[in-house]
């Protein structure tokens, strides 16, 4: 079942504020063999908040995505400023594009990631590929 076209253009509620801890940045950097020195976070760290927004989209029963059929096809970040420890981040996701190709839904999302003051930190674009049955 392809997704209903009405999901295109929908904006979902902001995710619950996520407080960036120094410990989490140490763990995130260490997972790639890097060392976190207390300054700016690793560039891809905002995925943690963007992922929460994508999960909310995928779990929303009114959207109709089956989680196990989803593949992360593409990810892009445009940064206004680096994330730092102590930031309180929230992501607001909009479904920008929806196409059907070969039985799969290609879902283009944009998540605006903001800080506690509502100021922009980064924009995360993700393409999710929702494979249909037999594709």
């Amino acid at each position: 079942m392809p997704l209903d076209a009405s999901v295109k253009g929908r904006t979902f509620p902001p995710t619950a504020p996520y407080t960036v801890s120094r410990e989490r940045l140490v763990e995130f950097a260490a997972s790639t063999g890097a060392t976190y020195d207390g300054g700016p976070a690793p560039a891809t760290f905002p995925i943690v908040v963007a992922f929460a927004a994508m999960t909310a989209l995928m779990r929303d029963p009114s959207v109709g995505i089956e989680l196990h059929r989803v593949v992360h096809g593409e990810q892009r970040f445009l940064y206004t400023r680096p994330v730092v420890a102590g930031d309180e981040l929230s992501a607001t996701l909009t479904v920008e594009t929806l196409r059907q190709i070969g039985g799969a839904d290609i879902i283009g999302t944009r998540s605006e990631i903001t800080d506690a003051g509502g100021l922009p930190v980064c924009t995360a674009y993700a393409t999710l590929v929702h494979r249909g049955e037999g594709s």
Binding site: D37, V71, E74, R76, F77, Y79, P82
Partner: peptide, 26 residues
């Protein structure tokens, strides 16, 4: 894998915090 690309960018830039755009298809 994208985080590894970011790590390489940080190495070339001389430290983290310089990446203004990063993205790829998987």
């Amino acid at each position: 894998t994208l985080a590894l690309a970011a790590r390489a960018l940080d190495t070339w830039a001389g430290g983290p915090g310089h990446v203004v755009e990063l993205g790829a298809k998987f």
